[in-house]
């Protein structure tokens, strides 16, 4: 579903990604690990289409040139980014935001939009599956949310939008162990033959809960080593130094 070939990305004339190659097939879970400044967040930004980067290389997503699509078009086609720092939007009820988002995606795909009642039914079901406090939904989007609540809210959005490719950008950072478990359960519940995941993280900890099919080590804008889930453990013991 996703083939990345020789991907380079520059921002303010500084090259961050320096020829990255990666292939993700439907249903696979890939983890990208790497030290600070290795280009992990840049990769998630470039894949979701954030402006401000000069990008070259080939990224093919379901036989389409992903780099030519607008941010929202990528979202319509099933790319979801769980933000490292989810944004606050004052005055906008979380429920309204979720409904607007879901219906925008449905509309773009020619599907029937949900009315308020259908939507509430869906969101209540998902929230209880993920053991979320429903009160969160009637609050203003991310305003006054704790770090954990913001991340849980991202996972709730992911499970409602049912994306084909979910990119989790350091979703585990700032989570206590209980929140980490809930978030991981949410991801695991969304795993299926059709949905793929790209999990970006510093630590092996998250990967104890979400077992990846592949682990890649990103250092200085390139993937220097790939392997199975055992690679994460190896890194935890030896550190990134051994690879650079």
């Amino acid at each position: 579903m996703l083939q990345i070939k020789d991907l380079k990305a520059k921002i303010d004339n500084k090259e961050i990604l320096k020829g990255l190659n990666l292939e993700i097939k439907p249903g696979e879970v890939h983890a990208i690990m790497g030290p600070n400044g290795s280009g992990k967040s840049t990769l998630s930004n470039v894949l979701s289409g954030k402006k401000g980067y000069t990008v070259s290389g080939d990224v093919t997503y379901f036989n389409e040139n992903l780099l030519e699509l607008e941010i929202e078009e990528r979202a319509h086609k099933g790319i979801f980014l769980a933000f490292q720092y989810p944004l606050e939007i004052p005055g906008v009820n979380t429920n309204i935001f979720l409904k607007t988002s879901l219906n925008a995606v449905k509309k773009a795909n020619g599907e029937k939009e949900l009315d308020a009642i259908e939507f509430l039914k869906l969101v209540k079901k998902k929230a209880s599956e993920l053991k979320f406090d429903e009160n969160i939904l009637s609050r203003q989007l991310n305003v006054g949310f704790s770090g954990g609540e913001k991340k849980k809210n991202e996972i709730l959005q992911m499970s409602i939008l049912n994306p084909k490719l979910s990119i989790l950008d350091e979703t585990d950072s700032g989570l206590d162990i209980d929140a980490l478990k809930i978030v991981s359960d949410g991801v695991n519940a969304s795993r299926s033959k059709e949905s793929s995941f790209l999990i970006i993280t510093h630590y092996q900890r998250l990967l104890e809960y979400i077992k990846p099919d592949f682990v890649h080590v990103l250092i200085n804008g390139q993937i220097v080593k790939s392997g199975g889930s055992e690679l994460a453990l190896e890194l935890e013991n030896k550190g990134y130094e051994s690879l650079s």
Binding site: L87, T100, L141
Partner: peptide, 19 residues
């Protein structure tokens, strides 16, 4: 953030301003 959730630029502005 709004674009990534499928809203185009105008829908996003309208949502934020209405909030």
């Amino acid at each position: 953030y709004c674009n990534q959730r499928g809203l185009n630029q105008e829908e996003a502005v309208s949502l934020i301003v209405n909030g």
